[in-house]
Simulated scan of single mutants.
Amino acid sequence: MSLVIYSMGRAQEHEVIDLWPSEVPGQSESKAPVVFSEDTRGNVTRIAKVTKPVLVVYEPASALKNGAAVIICPGGGYNILAIDLEGYEVAEWLSGLGYTAFVLQYRVPQNRAGALQDAQRAIRYVRGISEERGIDPNKVGILGFSAGGSLSARASTRYLEDSYAAVDALDKLSARPDFTALIYPAYLDQGPDRSLSPELRLSDETAPMFLFVAADDRFANSCLVMSSALQLQKVPFELHVLAHGGHGFGMRSGNHAAETWPKLCEEWLNVTVLKK
């Protein structure tokens, strides 16, 4: 573990956990620091390459800590990670609510197999350190945006698959998230006639889900087909569709959808996870 500094309007230090103690599965090149994109449109910091998958930890104040953890998967089309818009800013919000938040820097660009390995490892890792972190091992969830929503859905439905060979005792733990939030997820409708992607295998053990999207989002069908599949499988879920909002809005002010989903998600987490 090591410490790095990220700028989010002011300098902050956050613990960084290296997910893979030695070699990264399926990767031939050596681990290296992230490569940032020169594209900062929309005041968004984009990571263009990850060869060293990590979790950036946002601990809540001790007085707020509620015993639950959320792993956050930023989006970016599996090409980049919108690391502040859909990562650090969301982690600050969640930690302010009492959740121990972990921003997952999964492998990009275009490494879907590696991304799933990183997500499964992240869930196991957080569950493995739950006792020392004051986390209930049965309250470890995942939240993702766009491609990160795709990754979160994949992790939530493919947790019985061993996507990599075990590297230590942590890999004996379950990779199943206890709850899932998909915020404008993409790529969930890659089946025939835009039906549910065949790789997403639901069962009565699938974790409860929160889904949020705007109707004018080009990926809106992903939420609709997932919700239909969850209903057929009798998996608890909550779906919200706003008329307008587009895609990739994170939770910054100035967009009604961006300002709306956090309130709805907080209430869902209260009921579903914290049992308030």
Rank of each mutant, 00 (worst) to 15 (best):
99 Y>P: 05
265 C>W: 02
83 I>W: 02
131 E>F: 06
129 I>Q: 11
138 N>D: 13
81 L>M: 11
150 S>E: 11
215 A>E: 15
217 D>I: 02
94 L>F: 13
167 V>T: 13
250 G>R: 11
255 N>G: 07
117 Q>M: 15
223 C>M: 06
145 F>V: 10
208 P>A: 08
204 D>F: 04
19 L>D: 09
255 N>H: 15
204 D>K: 14
113 A>S: 14
185 P>T: 09
183 I>C: 05
160 L>C: 11
32 A>Y: 07
43 N>R: 15
237 F>A: 06
27 Q>E: 09
121 R>A: 09
87 G>P: 01
148 G>Q: 05
245 G>P: 00
154 R>D: 11
138 N>M: 12
70 V>N: 03
17 I>C: 14
228 S>E: 12
272 T>G: 07
149 G>W: 01
161 E>T: 10
41 R>Q: 13
86 E>C: 01
224 L>S: 04
156 S>T: 06
53 P>V: 05
59 E>C: 07
134 G>A: 08
40 T>S: 15
68 A>Y: 00
41 R>D: 09
67 G>I: 03
127 R>P: 01
53 P>R: 06
249 F>D: 02
88 Y>M: 12
246 G>A: 10
222 S>F: 09
32 A>E: 13
212 F>M: 04
265 C>M: 14
124 R>F: 09
91 A>M: 07
206 T>K: 00
130 S>A: 15
216 D>R: 05
164 Y>Q: 06
100 T>C: 04
219 F>A: 13
180 T>H: 04
94 L>D: 02
160 L>N: 14
247 H>V: 05
1 M>C: 14
